[in-house]
Nucleic acid binder design. Structure first.
Length: 278
DNA sequence: CTCAGTGTTCAGTG
DNA sequence: TCACTGAACACTGA
């Protein structure tokens, strides 16, 4: 689930449930992996009684700002999501088709109850997600180490080129590098390259100015479009590679009938259309 | 039973 | 130091 658009949607869910309310109950799972070494007790003490004043996001990290306390950062890993009490479970675990109506849901790592009676749960089945506390999230790791957020920022052509620097890595690897652009994950990287008509194997130093600019604008376009549709895959444009790239299906084709090829790049499955991408 | 997986990190190499 | 690679992490579901 969780690349920038899904995380942005998660932020909006958290915002709607939390901001302007006081936390009257906080259940924190005793999970040292997801809590990144902090004790559940410390997290609970931070949250309990706190007034939620704002939410924010950078790349795949989002956080809840509390009055007079550290902010609570969330990273979804491969399987994180927020659920709210009474909502349909829209954001289920990776491919869990089974509708989980229990409350709190399975794999809840953090459950917050607010003074208006609303509740939100952070669920994370594979434990690659993280919950962290930070006084000044943007100034501290991990967020201060990240590159630009494509939803907030469109670098100029010159800025984009200087961010690439003297690297010679494959385009796919560049896009997955969170210190380059924060929030781009595996499917977005493939979609961006598909729409920019660039071969994912190409190294960044081989691009001319026009190709670099196609890349720059494609990153923004894919991210903005996915966010505009609330990360709801069914509403992504029918022309997108996205709809045809899953499962490494032998003989997979785009809507236009062009063959999709699957290779491994940067350690990830990469889907691309050789007939189109150069 | 095996394996892939929408992510990140760290050890090792050149 | 930098850039890059690949394994490891942890767990579910196909």
């Amino acid at each position: 689930m969780p690349e920038l658009p899904e995380v942005e949607y998660g932020r909006q869910v958290l915002h709607g449930a939390a901001v302007g309310r006081r936390i009257v109950q906080a259940d924190v799972a005793d999970d040292p992996i997801v809590l990144d070494g902090i004790s559940a007790h410390v997290v609970r003490q931070t949250l309990l009684g706190a007034q939620a004043v704002q939410t924010d996001r950078h790349g795949k990290h989002l956080w809840l700002v509390l009055a007079d306390r550290p902010a609570v950062l969330f990273h979804f890993g491969m399987t994180g999501a927020f659920r709210t009490l009474g909502d349909e479970p829209l954001q289920l675990e990776t491919s869990g088709r089974r509708t989980d109506r229990s409350w709190p849901p399975r794999f809840t790592k953090l459950r917050l109850v607010f003074d208006d009676g609303g509740e939100i749960a952070f669920v994370n089945s594979r434990r690659l997600g993280r919950v962290r506390l930070r006084d000044d999230p943007r100034a501290e790791p991990p967020i201060c180490t990240l590159g630009y957020d494509p939803l907030r920022t469109l670098p100029s052509a010159e800025g984009f080129t200087s961010r690439i620097g003297r690297r010679r890595t494959a385009l796919k690897v560049l896009l997955l590098d969170q210190t380059f652009a924060a929030g781009v994950g595996n499917w977005i990287a493939d979609e961006v390259l598909y729409q920019a008509r660039l071969d994912p194997h190409r190294t960044v130093d081989t691009l001319d100015a026009a190709q670099r600019d196609r890349l720059r604008l494609s990153v923004r376009h894919v991210v903005k479009t996915a966010v505009r549709h609330n990360a709801d895959k069914d509403r992504f444009p029918a022309s997108w590679l996205f709809h045809h790239r899953w499962g490494k299906v032998e003989g997979a084709r785009t809507a236009a009938g062009q063959a999709i090829e699957f290779v491994t790049l940067g350690g990830r499955t990469t889907a691309w259309v050789p007939a189109l991408q150069r």
